[in-house]
Design a protein around this nucleic acid. Structure first.
Length: 273
DNA sequence: AATCATCCCAACCGCGAAGTA
DNA sequence: TTACTTCGCGGTTGGGATGAT
């Protein structure tokens, strides 16, 4: 395929889709079903690759998509919990979220990750100067934060690091300034090592109504919520799901048990004066 | 009003698995 | 069995939108 695609590269159109192209694609799917993507170009219907056509259909044109609709709190929780179970198996996670695509889930997750990276970086800066000296609030609604957070130490970027072997664990052990191996929490995607050594001074009030919302119950053997069932059973199952690989079993545990709105609250707090 | 930072999303790319001749 | 093709997934990027300064 790569050879074939390379032969007529100049004919391949890229970039945003036009309404006419969408129409052609929709007609193709109506007629032949969501398959034979490559034939769309070979028949001269569109100057798009099969991959591009498939992606457009799956992410934008497929019926019942929640386009332009933000993730609900429930959806966020679902994503976070499933990510801890399955790792970055976005397509698999998306099967639990009606109307959401793997791309949606992936985008949602990576934007959260970026926010977390920024938050951690800010809190690192803040904790090195004063214990907590957040940047001015950028204007989002500010809630009091009741969660502990992480200090940060730089680590060399590990070029060979694999997300499947690395973890961020929820922190729930007693606060200590002492740095030990257990206190080091690795964030491979960010190329950093998180060090729980300088807790923020707020948010340890167990009576606070938000406390359990954020960290979950101290005894975290209980799930925070019940996971939904996949809203459809792929029929036939996507090829990648037909065999459970070892990789699937050794799922990532990243931000395990972090409630959906944790970042919002951490973020808000770092921004609040 | 201009600039900057951040968020959000669409789309591309590379890779590997599955299908097929 | 092998080589080639097709498909699907995960990672990444670029640009528009939005809000703050």
């Amino acid at each position: 395929m790569k050879k074939m695609e390379a032969t007529k590269k100049e004919d391949i159109k890229k970039g945003p889709w036009k309404a006419e192209e969408d129409e052609v694609l929709i007609n193709h799917v109506k007629r032949y079903g969501p398959r034979d993507w490559s034939s769309i170009r070979s028949k001269g219907l569109l100057q798009r690759t099969g991959k591009s056509c498939r992606l457009r259909w799956v992410n934008k044109l497929r019926p019942n998509l929640k386009n332009g609709c933000k993730f609900s709190a429930e959806e966020e929780k679902t994503v976070i919990d499933l990510q801890s179970q399955f790792g970055n198996k976005w397509a698999r996670i998306a099967t639990y979220l009606p109307g959401r695509t793997d791309n949606d889930v992936k985008n949602f997750w990576s934007s959260r990750l970026k926010r977390l990276a920024r938050i951690l970086h800010n809190s690192s800066d803040a904790s090195s100067s004063s214990c907590f000296n957040p940047k001015p609030n950028k204007g989002k609604n500010v809630k009091p934060i009741q969660c502990q957070s992480f200090g940060l130490v730089e680590e060399e970027t590990r070029a060979s690091s694999s997300s499947s072997t690395s973890k961020i664990l929820p922190y729930s052990s007693p606060i200590s300034d002492q740095v030990d191996d257990e206190a080091l929490i690795r964030s491979p995607e960010l190329g950093i090592k998180l060090e729980h050594h300088q807790p923020f001074t707020f948010g340890t009030d167990l009576d606070d109504p938000f406390f359990y919302d954020i960290l979950g119950p101290a005894d975290s053997s209980e799930p925070l919520f019940c996971l939904p069932q996949p809203f459809f059973e792929p029929s036939p199952a996507p090829r990648r799901f037909r065999h459970v690989s070892k990789d699937d079993e050794e799922s990532d545990v990243f931000l395990h048990d972090f409630p959906a709105d944790m970042f919002d609250q951490v973020d808000d707090q770092t921004r609040s004066p």
